[in-house]
Design a protein around this nucleic acid. Structure first.
Length: 217
DNA sequence: ACCCAGGGTCATA
DNA sequence: TATGACCATGGG
């Protein structure tokens, strides 16, 4: 049987809490989730800093501002035209809730997820990142590291789609919302440190743990 | 110079 | 359903 709980506990013991998401407000975390799409966090952070420095990091400002201007300020995050559009698509939706995160808190997770996914340029991972890290919903965020690492250690075949992988975590990982937060962050941390694209991941800590406890299938 | 990073979408077969 | 192409910057 799967023992994702043990893998999580071992990663936590090894690396410690990651304290994600680095963002001062729910709104900053949300915009950060869009800006971080397929780009290093350092690049996304530069774009956030740029928006802050220009006093643009509020729902009202970004909603009214010309998308060309937004694109200019978020350039360091890459894909700046698409991301400017994504931000304004999100805000067009958020405007229906008066830019209120309290209003979002009243919506059931399944409904909220569906609505987020209906927004242009917001896919599974971005929607789930917003749900988990900005809205404190117990939703597992699946990313490239998750697929790569857990395929490598035998928990996945590599052919599962996003929803199938998420379903596995939802079914077998019994942590609370805080644990969901840390688990994803720890997977990214581990991926960056020790489990890159190298064909043979000789120093994979998760692989070590799985071997030690006989956890892989 | 090359590879990759806390993805998403669309055309094509 | 499943690949490929495209979007684009900055750090190693």
């Amino acid at each position: 049987m799967f023992s994702l709980n043990t893998v999580y506990q071992k990663l936590f013991a090894c690396y410690g809490p990651q304290h994600w998401w680095p963002g001062e407000t729910q709104f900053e975390v949300t915009i950060g989730a869009i800006l971080a799409q397929n780009v290093s966090w350092s690049n996304a952070a530069k774009a956030i800093a740029s928006l802050k420095a220009n006093n643009l990091l509020t729902p009202h400002k970004l909603f009214k501002e010309d998308s060309v201007v937004i694109a200019h300020h978020i350039k360091p995050s890459g894909y700046y035209n698409q991301k400017a559009f994504a931000i304004q698509s999100f805000l067009q939706w958020f405007h229906r809730y008066d830019f209120s995160f309290d209003a979002l808190n009243a919506i059931p997770t399944a409904i909220l997820r569906k609505e987020l996914l209906s927004i242009k340029r917001i896919g599974y991972e971005t929607a789930d990142s917003i749900l988990l890290y900005a809205l404190q919903r117990k939703v597992f965020v699946v990313d490239a590291y998750t697929r790569r690492i857990f395929t490598r250690v035998g928990f996945l075949t590599g052919n599962e789609d996003y929803m199938a992988i998420q379903a596995m975590f939802h079914e077998h990982f019994t942590g609370n919302t805080y644990d969901y937060n840390e688990f994803h962050a720890l997977i990214v941390k581990h991926g960056k440190d020790r489990c890159t694209k190298k064909p043979a991941c000789n120093e994979c800590y998760i692989a070590d743990v799985c071997k030690q406890y006989g956890l892989a299938k």
